[in-house]
Amino acid sequence: MGEGVAVSGDIAAFSDARIDMWSKIGSGVKVGRNAYLGEFVTIDGKLIVEGDLDVGKEVKIKGGFEAKGWIIVRNPVPVIMFLLLYIREMMRLGKGEEVEKALEELFDDSEEGEEFDGKEPAEKVLIIPADTRISPEAMEIGGKAVIGNNCYLIGNLRVQSIETGKALILKGSINSEGNITIGENSTVYGSLISKGQVHVGKNSRVFGGIRADSVVMHEKARVDGTIKAPSGVSFLREASGEKPPLAEVNALGKVIMVEAEEQLRNEPDKGLVKAVNIEEADSPIKTGLKVKDGFVPGMEKKSARTRSLARTRHFAGPRSLRKRQGAGDHQS
Rank of each mutant, 00 (worst) to 15 (best):
G9P: 00
D10I: 09
A12H: 15
W22A: 11
S23P: 04
G26T: 09
G26F: 04
K30L: 12
G32V: 06
N34G: 01
N34K: 01
Y36M: 09
G38K: 08
E39A: 14
T42Q: 07
K46D: 15
L47W: 11
V55K: 07
V55F: 06
V55H: 05
G56T: 06
G56E: 03
E58V: 07
K62Q: 03
K62M: 07
G63D: 13
E66Q: 14
A67V: 08
G69H: 13
N75Y: 10
P76I: 09
V77I: 15
L83N: 01
L84Y: 08
L85A: 12
E89H: 13
M90F: 08
M90G: 03
M91G: 00
L93P: 10
G94F: 06
G96Y: 01
E97G: 00
D109K: 12
G113I: 00
E115Q: 04
E123D: 11
T132V: 08
G148W: 10
G148R: 13
N149H: 15
C151W: 05
L153S: 07
I154W: 00
L157M: 11
R158H: 09
S161N: 04
E163M: 11
K166H: 09
A167T: 07
N175C: 02
E177H: 01
E184M: 09
T187M: 03
Y189C: 04
Y189W: 01
G190Y: 00
L192C: 03
Q197T: 10
V198N: 04
V198L: 02
H199G: 02
G201F: 01
D224G: 02
I227F: 04
A229G: 08
S231R: 13
S231D: 15
S234H: 05
F235V: 15
L236V: 11
A239V: 03
S240R: 12
S240N: 13
G241Y: 06
L246K: 03
A247E: 12
N250T: 08
I256M: 10
E261R: 05
E262D: 14
N266T: 15
E267S: 08
P268N: 06
D269K: 01
V273E: 08
N277K: 04
N277V: 10
E279I: 10
D282N: 02
K286D: 10
T287L: 05
D293W: 04
G294K: 12
F295W: 09
M299V: 15
E300K: 15
K302Y: 12
S303N: 15
A304M: 10
A310T: 05
R311W: 11
F315Y: 12
F315P: 00
A316S: 04
A316N: 04
P318G: 06
L321N: 06
R322V: 10
G326H: 09
D329A: 15
Q331A: 06
S332V: 11
